[in-house]
Design a protein around this nucleic acid. Sequence first.
DNA 1: TTAGGGTTAG
Length: 569
Amino acid sequence: MYIMRSKRVAWVTVNTLTPLFWMVFAGSQDFKMRFHSFGRIIRWSLGPQLCRSIPSCQGSMEEAIECANDMEKNGLSPDVVTFNILAKGFHLLGLMSGAWNIIKKMLLKGLHPDQVTYTILICGHCQAGDVDEGLKLREEMLSLNLPLNCISYTVLLSSLCKSGRVVEALNLLYEMEATGVRADIVTYSILIHGLCKQGEVQKAIMVYRDMISKRIFPNSFTQTSILLGMCQRRTIKEARMYFDALTTSNLTDCVVWYNIMIDQYAKCGKIGEAVDLYKQIITKGITPSTVTFNSLIYGFCKQRKLDEARWWLDAMKLYGVIPSAITYTILMNAFCEERNMQSMLALFHEMETKAVVPTHVTYTVIIKGLCRQWKLQEAVQILNDMYAKGLRPDQVTYNTIIQSFCKARNLENAFQLHTEMLARDLVPTPVTYNLLINGLCVYGELTDADSLLVSLQDRNVKLTKVAYTTIIKAHCAKGDVQRAIFYFDQMMEKRFEISIKDYSAVINRLCKRSLLTEVKFFFLMMLYDGIYPDHQICEAMLNAFHERGDLQSHFQLLGEMIKLGLLID
DNA sequence: TTAGGGTTAG
């Protein structure tokens, strides 16, 4: 009971390494109570410091472990809960090897990991981005006859949703139902959110109805997911209607709903509406968050009103809201877009003086700025500095520099960076390959672009339509229509949605080379595909037919244009 | 006593 009075007492106890503690508990008959108090001390010794930097956290982990060791010295054996608390501590620090060591100790003591232990480990794998390892642990649990509970399922489900694997997440929900594990509001909220984010709004509604039928009622998290879904798949007006209904029918308003709405307005250029909502937040006495200001700043940056954007950064400070790395990065990117490197770097230094730690996105913006000034070696230097600072550049970081090396006709360095990505276990994105293919098409050998595309296809590397349209355009421009048709067929076989833009790109290039038979071939293919020509594409063809003296085709097309209403007078 | 959820930047 003494321990429970205040945190301060617990800290005194831990820091003086327990003599006081044992004086308090000496002679206590309530063994369980003493044991639980140790758990609290361990949690307290982890808690306040976990929020700080890693080195001080490690210190507190040592203290927690020392406390657990102290238990043993005093004749109390740590149990599964004690070990779980320690494992969780390591997990929070991202030190999963430490968590595994704790589990090993636990096993050596003849204790068996329980559902919580497994959940912590699953969480560790999932947060490291390895859901499949988490799913393997699920198999292990099942093989050990250790059924997963709602929380363990929810951790897996959350991670699957974050990786975009919503179908598998849905299947897990069905598995829960089949095994008699009742999903709760957290499970449903995560799933509805995941489905909405993937644009699967219909499925999200289905899950929502299922939830209501089980008499689980939405809370602010669920409502946030639905609002997001509305923003993604419906018009902003419909989202606003839902938002208005939320804010008028709920007793307590949630700042996240306002943030989502403000962000939507900021993104579509309706900054006035965004500011109006901000005023509503203040009038209602809701505390705006960093995200509120970030979205407003983004909105002003998008309108290229950088003075006003900067004013909002200062306004944050007046309200006691702390700017984050995202706040600074938004502004830095806006200055980068304006080619104002000086202001961009001034903001970066301001960040440093205010102890706001830059992220990999912040550095990517700096790299983008350097690339725009063709300071490519300096950009590579920043990339290396990132690793030295313990930051992991991502695909966008690499793509930014690769694009610039391609534009600078330095394909060797561009491919070197691609190799470096692979060496660092960073899976290149379809954009990486689009950039490299485009680089080879425009500044290198087209045959090399062909070889790259074929090798990617052979290795089943995920590609987007752009890879195909890029190579098709290049073959059209260089007159190898057979090859262009070959890739066009492939693009259709892969069921990419082909638009008039794609046909126009091909037909325009063929017109420029006066390859009229091929022009007619693609034009017919477009009509067969159910795509109506526009005025621009017809104009290009008319000119080409006229220039080559193919008057029959010229007048035939004119006739078609009149029928389609594309020719006025 | 220990495990799970929402909004923003390149």
